[in-house]
Amino acid sequence: MANKISDETIEYVGILAKLELSDTEKEQAKSDIERMLDYIDKLNELDTSDVEPLSHVFPVNNVFREDVVTNGDERARLLENAPAAKDGAFQVPKTVE
């Protein structure tokens, strides 16, 4: 079974992935995904109709704690890693007119 990825699909996946791909990269991504899906389709050989999806190997429960602050103010340290900062905040391009 050969999977086919359309131009619209790769465009859409690029938006979801927040990646900007050149035309060559888009073609490459199409053929990469098609090839992987052909391989992944092997899973269809398995009858899983009665099997529950297993997201974690052990039962995972919510871990609750009291909402108490235990760390100090690390604003300045965190901002040291920011590509751009201003007035104690992350600086980004203008988003609203």
Binding site: E52, P53, L54
Partner: peptide
């Protein structure tokens, strides 16, 4: 794809 893979993981 995703849920199918998680079911396979269970198997």
């Amino acid at each position: 794809y995703y849920l199918k893979a998680l079911r396979t993981k269970a198997l």
